[in-house]
Design a protein around this nucleic acid. Structure first.
Lengths: 345, 345
DNA sequence: GCGCTCTACTAGCGCGCTCTAGTGCGAGTA
DNA sequence: TACTCGCACTAGAGCGCGCTAGTAGAGCGC
């Protein structure tokens, strides 16, 4: 007896409890909670009041089971990624506006993408939105056949998966045009290894150099989308300078985190940015606003990307029409701040 | 007819489908999938093979409903917070080791804490782990009565909620002792406003100054747990110096992000760290490893904090015993890196 | 009186699973 | 032969809800 009611016995109240206490049928309570026609205003108020009193919350599991649809979107993200955080922030309002709930699952060391996705699916997410997926195309295709999947930030040609990304080509081209216009000729690129989008950025960098007649100056320093990689590249450049090689006058980093690490290393080495070296990032993640000296970078519009991702998922759930995978390619936008300037004469 | 099988018609196979195809009862399939005794090895293999063939996955919603327990832990986090990311990373393995699944919900602008928690609860999380909750104590207490809740990084005295935090007092004391031992006397503190733990850190800073006989030098610059706040404080100090006031020889920042902003501002102003000013952070978040010059900081052990949080939740689910809210206070540890040194004579 | 419509409400099945209480059935024991 | 025992397996109730089909009653026209 002692164990049944107080504190410890957290027995969730059910619809039946509410119904009994409000002296109506279960069905009526259901109607009220789904906000459907078929109940008088008076009854609605009473039911809601009673429900509130006994702390009733509809049970999603049962709800899903009964209606066959969960109206829940799953989002897979990398928990340390600031850009993913931006995206998630924008996914919420969009999804809720369309009547969908959002559940998150993170990838982390020891908790890979398949884990995260399985978790989402088994919690009945109707669709999964994958932020920067890293899985093989074949896996994504298989996933896309099993459920509705949207990839954000990565093209997945040949897989049954919608995708949303920004045009890496255009972004890089804008950045390069900006630098060349300022007068830079010696521009190196720290690439993002196999990070999302980096292959395209690399390609676009090369193309831009060629287009500006700077073929011979092409230099790609292998890197990754991390601060460490920017630091390493910075050390490399500084070491080269100390051995008598000239610094490049501009660096196009693989992303903002990389640019960030680079900036700190340059600052430490007493190299003036943008006086001696201009630095351009990529992403316009929170970092860029936050630094005392604004980072010139390429903005990927997280809000619009999130919107497209959610819409793709919901539309495909809606009709299942439009058999072919769709792709939204958004134009990124160069944001010029304080780390880029004409090279010193 | 055309719409029933191919591509679009993502009809999830159920247990009954597997049972029919394997020529056994549904119950047997259930036994196999729960890995319970009561089926021969031969049958197990056959069932699993058939299930795999038709792509069957157990449906969590139904499973939860049926067994009354979800064995799922919900984690509420702030999506932009690096320390939360560390915690989440450690929550996963711990929870999975205990047989629990993990679901995340983020707080974000327009998607407050109550939203996130409701979402978790309605998805049948048996317990919620709140990372740095900001809600009023009364709300947390109410939540703790409705379900099992654990607060991480914030004491919630008087609420029916377990909590895990590190001893701000000890952390700050270690940092201050370190600075004083190096010879610093002029130490200011940039506080964290109403951020988690900052009240205690502020108090501990004052106490330490007093203890070292530096009462008269106490100075708290109002701030927040953000890079911006570090930048602002940095500008303030630089401006003061330009007006002839001496710089402090050491700064205890409210957390790493704040320290980070401060460092960048100082670097920009040509102030040498740690030559002219020593800087100590708090959190040992990823940032600290990542900067080219290692940040001296106070480590909150994310791994252990996550472990305690999960254990508290699971234990309370297990027996419901130990009526009184429990509290784990972990000792943080000063990590001396490169931003602290003796003051210039 | 009858039929009709409209609103407010209820009965009860079924979603996909778990779990208790069984049913056979072959082997071991007396 | 009769009896237990243990193993492999099954029948069927029920988890909390949504939803379809239905009922009761009020109002209205003839």
């Amino acid at each position: 007896m002692g164990s049944s009611v107080d504190g410890t016995g957290k027995q969730r109240p059910t619809m039946a409890d509410v119904a009994a206490k409000a002296k109506v049928s279960r069905a009526l309570v259901s109607i009220v909670f789904r906000n459907q026609p078929g109940a008088s205003q008076k009854t609605r108020d009473r039911v809601l009041r009673v429900a509130d009193e006994i702390g009733y919350r509809p049970d999603n599991a049962a709800r899903l089971l009964a209606r066959g649809r969960s109206r829940t979107l799953g989002v897979m993200l990398t928990v340390h990624n600031a850009f993913h955080a931006d995206l998630v922030t924008s996914v919420y309002p969009e999804a809720e506006g369309l009547g969908y709930d959002v559940l998150l699952a993170a990838t982390a060391p020891g908790h890979g993408e398949s884990h995260a996705v399985e978790s989402l699916i088994s919690h009945r997410c109707e669709a999964v939105i994958l932020l920067g997926p890293d899985a093989p195309t074949a896996d994504l295709d298989a996933l896309g056949r099993r459920t509705v999947a949207v990839s954000v930030g990565r093209r997945v040609p040949g897989a049954r998966v919608d995708s949303v990304r920004s045009s890496e080509g255009k972004g890089v081209r804008q950045a390069m045009d900006h630098l060349v216009e300022l007068g830079h000729r010696h521009i190196v690129h720290i690439d993002g290894g196999r990070g999302p989008g980096s292959a395209e950025r690399r390609r676009a960098y090369r193309a831009a150099m060629r287009r500006h007649g700077l073929d011979s100056g092409v230099r790609v320093i292998p890197g990754a989308h991390t601060e460490e990689s920017g630091i390493a590249a910075g050390h490399l450049l500084v070491a080269e300078r100390d051995r008598g090689h000239p610094l490049p006058t501009a660096v196009l980093a693989g992303n903002d985190r990389c640019a960030m690490g680079l900036l700190m290393t340059l600052a430490r080495a007493g190299i003036d940015v943008p006086g001696e070296v201009s630095v351009v990032g990529y992403d316009d993640s929170h970092l860029s606003h936050v630094m005392p000296v604004g980072l010139t970078t390429v903005r990927q519009d997280a809000v619009r990307m999130a919107r497209y991702a959610v819409r793709f998922a919901v539309e495909r759930l809606g009709d299942g029409a439009s058999e072919k995978p769709r792709e939204a390619v958004l134009d990124p936008k160069l944001v010029v701040r304080d780390t880029s300037a004409p090279p010193r004469p």
